[in-house]
Every structure is written in structure tokens, then in C-alpha cells.
Design a protein around this nucleic acid. Structure first.
Lengths: 249, 249
DNA sequence: CAGTAGCAAATGTACATACATTTGGTTGCC
DNA sequence: GGCAACCAAATGTATGTACATTTGCTACTG
């Protein structure tokens, strides 16, 4: 499953490679230009440009005519949506991250099965974590993933490991995109106890469907403490090749 | 102010034109293909393709190889972010929309001035509305816009008029994009009374900065009743020319 | 030494072309 | 009538080219 139906398009391979390099701290002083990338990967400038596009949409780099692309120094507190990793967000905010694993097993959640669109019989890998920043609970996080994809994760120690990294390293699946739905809900008795707040405290509930190569690989529900998180997102028509994200304002 | 620094790129002109046509209900049976558009607007296929991109990102149309683009029949309840008009959202949900205008004047809000980045002396057009769906309050909405842009709106009847339409028609300004920040907050006494809910009811607070031709033209705060609204958004790397939005899942 | 004019580099826009892949319909056979 | 093979149309990917526009640096001039 989840093998590339075809080989991924060249621009996406390059985009993934570049994103990994940026995250790895390479390019600390100077990001290559379009022509440099075209030469390095032996593709045309158009393809190199296409690879840069998702990075700009994610706010990782910014570009203007006349100068090379530059790595954007982002304010982590307003970038949850873009970097889509709570682990990275907390760590890059200078806080200490820790997760309490509440559940990590195979299960058969009907609602999650329907969201994922997997066959009814197939079990789901289920990971429920309480997320702490500097030893204070800030969010409750619940992930469902088809066992055909995520089975190797059953014995991973998730007390301080980003889910998407383990998914990539151990399952060979790189999350490429998806969609989210955001609601405001009261904590209620269950989350009030977990998050150490009052039952009527507003929480930001983010439901996420993530996919890789056309297959839905994750259904996630995250409950954020409303007073500690905000979600940023761009909207409207971005330019097909022009500036986007931070550059827009 | 807000005149195009240059003429807008061709692909953006075409994109705006197509979006207007779709909204006007044209193309009810059949959306033209890339080659048709290229012929109609006398541009290359690449430019026509670039024009279609923002429409796909907004979820207005969907495309796949081998068949023409099709207008997406969207579920309005999950598309607030995409169509970014609460008026349209309510109406297209089959409900009756009505606004109670609470304030409509020129003011000098320091916070909004800072957000907009306008000179400190310049007054701001300020519109505060209580939004009703089928005569039930569902949201409180507050707009700030530089008077140099929005002055003509001072005498408009906003009890049932979409703000962006008036901005376009009377001020010649078309909102092209921007960014939002989403939080969960308790209603508090003020909004509890306005929205007829308990003070601890969770609200979805959406702060929006919208711009047109590089100028920030709107700062908006909207408080949604948490149990009646959810916000949808795509995330992750979209393909530079490939499918996006609904197609991704 | 400061200010400006000019130049080179890089991105933004647009075009033309070629081929691959997918979809949908048509044709023809059984 | 149903099924399969084929074919045409449309989108997806990729390359190459050309020119406009912006940025940043350099060199020249007052």
C-alpha cells in the first residue's frame, strides 16, 4: 500500500528533498536560487520553480525578483498550521516538549474508519497523547491510521517523538497535504481533567485528514487549550508563481 | 490609492473574471477547458492554467486529466474560509440572512490602525454587525478599513449587503487574499448578551487581514458561535499545477 | 566622501512545444 | 445487448526560450 502509483513527479521529489534539507538546518546561510537548483537537480528552471512553490506556500522561504530566495524566520506561535507539527512548534518556541501516551494499540473505531475511508474490517492504529509544554498540559491529541500503513508504529516510544517523522522513517510514508476542520468546543469533564482546566474552558478542536500519494493515511483530532494556541492560515488567491504567504502582506 | 502599481498580471485578470462568472451563475452546465480559455482570452495554455489555479485552490472548480474542469458543488457549511463571505454562506445554506448594524462610522481605533499599518492620523471606517441566520444571532462581525479606501461605504445600508461586494462596487477594490488567525475564546458578558448565549459559551474568533494589490484594506474580527460554525482549510504542499482542494482527498 | 548612474543577477511573466496519463466515448465483435 | 479494444480529448509534466522588473552591487562623478 501507499507505494507511489507512479514515480512522484520530479518537482515533488525536489520539494521534499529541499524541505528536509531546510529542516536539517542546511542552507543556514544562503538558499540557492532557481538556476542553481535547476543545475543541481538537472531539471529546467520551470521544474525547479515548481518545487519551490510548496515551500513558499508553507512559508518556509520567501522570494522576490532580483534577489535569491531566503529562508523565512517564522514566528512559531503563529505557524502551527504551516509546519503542522506540535512537537516542532513547542521545541522551536524554546519550551520543553513531553507527551504522555494514554493509548497506543490497534482498535476498530467506526467513526475514524469512516473518515479514513478504509475497509470496515481493517484495524486502525490508535495513538492518544497528552501533550505538555514545559510540563504543563497544552493539548490532547488522538491519531488514527490504517494498520496497513502504521503497523510498525505499535512499538515506538512516542513520549518525545514527532508522529510524522516516525511515519516517514518507519513506514516510508510522507504526509503531503490534507484538510482540517476547526471548531470551538467546551472542554467538558473529560478534557477538563486531562488538561487541568475548567469544564467550560473553550478548546480549539482541529480535525485533520492527511494523505500521501492519494491515500488517506491519518485521521487526527487535537484539542488545544484556547488561551494558549491560535491557528494561522492564508486565504484567497495566491499567485501561481508569485509571492505568497508572508510576502503577501 | 490602491491603484494597480502595474497592470495586474494577465493570469490574475482572467482568474478574477472567471470567479465573477462562476459566482454569477454562468457556466451552470459546463466549464470551459484550458484550451477553450486560452482561445477565448488569447493567451497561451500556460497562462490559462495559471488562472485556473487560484480557482482550484479556492475549491471552486476541480480538475482531472482527461476531462474538463468542473464546478465543484461545495458543502457551504464547511466552506466558510473558501468563499469568505458569511452572507453568501448563510444564503446558500437556504437560510435567511439579516444583519443588525450596531456601528457604522469613522473612528480611530489604535489596535486596528496598527494591524492595518495605516498612518496614525488617518481615520478608519468602522462597521459592526450582528449577523442573523433565520432571525437567530450566529455571529458578531467587526470591520475596520482605511477611510481612504472605504469612505464611500459610510452611507450604505448593510442590513443585507455583503461587505466585499460593496467594497468592490463602490470603492473599486477587490479583495484578493490575506491571512487569518483563529482562536477559541469564551463569549464573556458582552457577546453573551449579543449572541443570546451563556458567558462561558466557546466562540470561534477569526481575525482577518485582507489586502488588494499589496495594500492592506481590511482588518476584521468575527466571533462565531462555536456550536454552529466550523472552519475548513486545506494544508500541506499542493501541486504547482496539479489537483488541489477537494481532489486531494 | 556621498550620491547617482549604470550594470549584472535573479525572479516574474508569458509563450511555444512535446509527450505522458487519464477519462470518456465509440466502435466492433461475440 | 454486453463486453472489450481502441481512439480522441483533456489535463499533468517537463523543457526551452524570451523579455520585463526588481534588487543589490559597483563604479563613476561632483
Amino acid at each position: 500500500m501507499v507505494e507511489a502509483t507512479r514515480s512522484m513527479p520530479r518537482w515533488r521529489q525536489i520539494a521534499d528533498e529541499l524541505r528536509d534539507r531546510i529542516r536539517a538546518g542546511q542552507y543556514k546561510s544562503g538558499f540557492p536560487g532557481e538556476l542553481d537548483l535547476a543545475a543541481e537537480f538537472s531539471v529546467s528552471r520551470g521544474t525547479a520553480r515548481a518545487a519551490l512553490r510548496p515551500l513558499r506556500e508553507a512559508g518556509l522561504i520567501s522570494a522576490s525578483p532580483g534577489r535569491r530566495s531566503q529562508i523565512t524566520q517564522i514566528d512559531p506561535a503563529s505557524q502551527y498550521g504551516a509546519i503542522y507539527s506540535l512537537h516542532d512548534l513547542i521545541v522551536s518556541s524554546g519550551m520543553k516538549h513531553r507527551s504522555t501516551v494514554l493509548q497506543q494499540h490497534l482498535t476498530a473505531d467506526p467513526a475514524a474508519t469512516e473518515q479514513l475511508g478504509t475497509p470496515v474490517g481493517e484495524p486502525l492504529f490508535h495513538l492518544a497523547r497528552l501533550r505538555h509544554a514545559d510540563d504543563q498540559p497544552v493539548a490532547f491529541d488522538e491519531v488514527f491510521s490504517p494498520s496497513s500503513v502504521a503497523a510498525p508504529l505499535i512499538e515506538v516510544d512516542f513520549s518525545d517523538a514527532p508522529f510524522y517523522r516516525e511515519l516517514r522513517v518507519r513506514c516510508g510514508v510522507t504526509v503531503q497535504g490534507g484538510s482540517e476542520q476547526i471548531q470551538a468546543v467546551p472542554a467538558g469533564d473529560r478534557f477538563a481533567e486531562l488538561l487541568a482546566c475548567a469544564p467550560e474552558t473553550p478548546l480549539l478542536l482541529v480535525e485533520r485528514l492527511a494523505c500521501s500519494n492519494g491515500q488517506t493515511v491519518e485521521y487526527r483530532r487535537t484539542y488545544f487549550l484556547g488561551d494558549r494556541f491560535r491557528v494561522a492560515r492564508p486565504f484567497g488567491s495566491s499567485s501561481p508563481n508569485g509571492p505568497c504567504g508572508p510576502d503577501l502582506l
